[in-house]
């Protein structure tokens, strides 16, 4: 299958997305913001619709609108203007409603939209791959460089505030990274399923890891394996890659649960 250029492009984008999504998702899951990816994904849909309407590059418009939505959620939370789930709901529904209206106005309410909602092997262009690789690697480097302060905020946000760490900018950065991840991943996994790739590998890794650092490394390995297996399965079975990728990641959670189950059972029996 690698003799086909579209598959090489899909795998190239998939490798970046498979590593980046759990690396960003790690910080969201630990902050109890697992569903923020879903909210931003719906905002990204509005961005895609705006791209159709204005005839602009869809990844670019999705990126700009997603980052705006993510920063709005974080801003509402930080200023305590709304509880976390209310802020999420506001942006979530505004995004999906705006997307439907815009895409309808653009006359693009057709089958092409499904490629963005659930991913498609055929949609990654060379330009897309260059953007995905550039921004994706940049995001991973940023996470590596700011790993310690990001972890400090995740472990104890109030303690970080008291000791004068820049908590608000760090939280805004996490939200912006989530938005970038979603915009970059929509070609491969799809807007509606990318949040799963940010969350499920982290859940699976936490069940088998022995430290925070090992959790993030294992989750990135699971994310990468899920995308590669998902794309391969999608190619041979003619299925949307988003769905197959997320099902592989869900299977990883199940396997991790089964692996840790005997230890829990022994502990209970001992009690």
């Amino acid at each position: 299958m690698l003799h086909l250029e579209f598959m090489r492009l899909a795998f190239g984008a998939g490798i970046v997305v498979g590593l980046l999504a759990p690396a960003v998702g790690f910080f969201l899951v630990q902050r109890r913001l697992s569903l923020i990816g879903d909210g931003i994904g719906h905002v990204a849909f509005a961005g895609v619709a705006l791209g159709y309407l204005l005839d602009l590059p869809l990844v670019l418009t999705a990126l700009v609108v997603s980052v705006g939505g993510a920063l709005s959620i974080e801003g509402l939370r930080a200023r305590r203007r709304a509880a976390g789930d209310q802020a999420l709901a506001l942006v979530f529904y505004t995004g999906i409603a705006g997307g439907v209206v815009l895409v309808s106005a653009a006359g693009a309410l057709n089958v092409n939209l499904f490629q963005f909602l659930f991913g498609s092997l055929l949609t990654v262009t060379r330009t897309d791959l260059a953007v995905i690789a550039g921004l994706g690697v940049g995001a991973l480097v940023l996470i590596a460089v700011l790993y310690r302060p990001l972890v400090a905020v995740v472990v104890d946000e109030e303690g970080a505030r008291v000791s004068n760490l820049p908590v608000v900018p760090l939280n805004a950065l996490t939200a912006a990274l989530a938005a970038v991840t979603i915009a970059l991943s929509m070609r491969v996994v799809g807007i509606l399923l990318i949040a799963a790739l940010m969350v499920l590998p982290v859940i699976a890794a936490a069940r088998v890891a022995w430290s925070l650092r090992s959790t993030i490394v294992i989750s990135m390995a699971i994310g990468l394996a899920s995308v590669l297996a998902g794309i391969t399965t999608a190619y041979y079975a003619n299925l949307p890659p988003g769905g197959t990728t997320v099902l592989v990641a869900a299977a990883a959670v199940l396997l991790a649960e089964l692996r840790s189950a005997p230890a829990h059972l022994l502990h209970r029996l001992a009690r």
Binding site: I203, W210, S214
Partner: peptide, 22 residues
């Protein structure tokens, strides 16, 4: 609040961040 496994060293290292370079 985190679910992931956290070692004592990782917890204490988080407290050191404000005194070190970011």
């Amino acid at each position: 609040p985190i679910d992931a496994p956290l070692t004592v060293r990782e917890l204490v290292s988080a407290g050191r961040v404000p005194r070190s370079r970011l």
